[in-house]
Amino acid sequence: MSGSTGEAAERTALEVRGLGRQYGRRWVLRDATFRLPAGRVCGLVGPNGAGKTTMLEIVAGLREASAGEARVFGEPAGGAQARQRVAFLPQEKPLFARFTVAETLRLGHELNPRWDQELAEGFVRAGSVPLDAKVGRLSGGQRTRVALAVALGKRPDLVLLDEPLADLDPLVRRQTVAALLGEVAERGITVLLSSHLVAELDTLCDYLLLVAEGGLQLAGDVDEIISVHRTLTAPTDRIPTGPDGLPAGLEHHTVVEIHGDQRYTTALVRPGGPVGGVWEDSAPTLEEVVLAYLAQNGSAPLISPNSYVPGVGSEVVK
């Protein structure tokens, strides 16, 4: 399905090598290496404190890396050329409560040489946000839409969104996602967004990065990530114990995570051979894969071929 010559030739929006950030003695992001092809919508997931916001800030040029580097369309993150092509929307939307919506867009216009007033205004109007309303009086969903309009109005090639959907109700979330994806379709922009809403990522994102305590755990095309995993289930009392004391029948697979109770045991694996014996297998959902990687201890990172940066090592899936 993937890995065709067309995809191999995809331009790179973001390339990150050995990226890390230290706060005092603590590393929140460590040795992250991946590439994000242009035109993708990439979800960035991970537990609190794993460095999602830090990564976005480094790519946006708002924070220095302690180790490694990030390049945006080939230019060093934080440099003038990279910053022109990037828009960053932090979790606390940077809006002035006493400005009207129109004044907010005007400010965007004044500050950004590439500003697209038609796009920004259209994006706000499509959400039925009155242009003369004070920002401080808008609902959470309307504020998010205005902040997104300002980000998109800069005509960025890469949009970085930190938890853009966190404080929205499900309906507004869906409307916001639909509007954002419409712009992606129209302009071919690349989106990197952090989110805790794992269940909603599968229709929103086609690319995924998962960071945890141990660093980058997953990077790659969503369909590809799902296709190399299987969910195995068996009645717990029927699973024989193998020579190494682990459940038998899993020896040939990379076991990402396994859990169970007295009745059923479920394992998420990367199969290394045929699945058999007492195990029933099925295709996992993206949510199952993400939850398994979040629960494991960092022993089985997976970097898929099209997010692999040559010469910087981690396991590669063939």
Binding site: G39, V41, Q175, A178, A179, L181, G182, A185, L204, D206
Partner: peptide, 15 residues
């Protein structure tokens, strides 16, 4: 179009 599907179904245009 991919844009229309994105705007009506909130589905990623690449999908």
């Amino acid at each position: 179009t991919a844009r229309e599907v994105a705007e009506t179904c909130a589905v990623n245009p690449n999908t």
